[in-house]
Simulated scan of single mutants.
Amino acid sequence: MNPLEQAFAWVNDPLNWTNPGGILDRLGEHLVISVAAVAIGCLVAWPLGLWLGHARRGGGLVVVLSNISLAIPVIALLTILPLTFLGFGRAPVIVALAVFAVPPLLATAHTGVLQADPEARDAALGMGLSSGQVLRRVELPLAVPYLAAGFRTAAVQVVATAALASFVNGGGLGQIISAGFGLGMAVGGGQILAGGVLVALLALLADLLLAAGERAVTPRPLRRARRGQAGRA
């Protein structure tokens, strides 16, 4: 059989789904790693981005932090972090992917607050709201569509990149691919292809679901404005 036929046969074998270390187990590990990494990225990036946007400063800092995060390859972090107190396993993978998730989360949080209607902000201040109340009650709700867009980008990137967890025995769908390489291309070619397709399908599914969520939290006037900008582009 060619690799495509091998992949089809491998995916359709029920034992490859239900056995320990099978698709279901690896899928659960992949989701745990991805959710944890994106959650940590949100906890770090969103408060910082929202505060800098509210203060109307730090644009250069946001760019620098984003560029630094993007400049460090995930594979490099996965090589370095296991040599620290984190050791091998899920912990270094989650930290590395959280660093990878920070740039889109940070940039969109900062931009979202900056794009808030200045008249609404001034009106809130004129009504006697404190700076913190303006951020919570005015700027943050207006920034939600931007936060959703950044979350979608970060989540899809993390889901797709989490396959690298297999390099440090971190689990996930990447273990299926690495196990296939261990068997050699002649025997494990179909397993390698199947693992790659599973990762791609999971990333695509995450993108579709989060796109629906992003649309749901984006007001209709803003949707039309974005479509108009896309059309002009």
Rank of each mutant, 00 (worst) to 15 (best):
P3G: 12
L4S: 15
W10F: 05
D13I: 05
N16K: 05
N19D: 15
P20D: 12
P20E: 11
G21Q: 09
L24T: 13
G28E: 04
E29I: 03
H30C: 11
L31C: 04
S34C: 02
W46G: 05
P47C: 01
L48P: 02
L48F: 10
A55L: 13
G58Q: 00
G60Y: 12
V62T: 04
V63M: 14
L65W: 11
L65K: 05
L65R: 04
S66C: 15
N67K: 11
I68W: 03
I72N: 00
P73V: 00
P73N: 04
L78I: 06
L81S: 02
P82R: 01
I94G: 01
V95K: 08
G112W: 03
L114P: 09
A116W: 10
E119M: 15
A120I: 13
A123P: 07
A123M: 07
A124D: 09
G126Y: 11
L129T: 13
L129N: 07
S131R: 15
V134P: 08
L135T: 08
L135I: 03
R136V: 14
A143R: 02
A143D: 04
V144L: 15
T161K: 00
A162R: 01
F167H: 11
V168Y: 05
V168L: 11
V168N: 08
I176H: 10
I177W: 09
G180M: 02
G184Y: 10
G189V: 06
A194W: 02
G196M: 04
L208K: 09
L209C: 12
L210N: 01
A212W: 11
R215K: 08
A216D: 01
L222F: 04
L222T: 10
L222G: 10
G228A: 14
Q229G: 12
A230C: 11
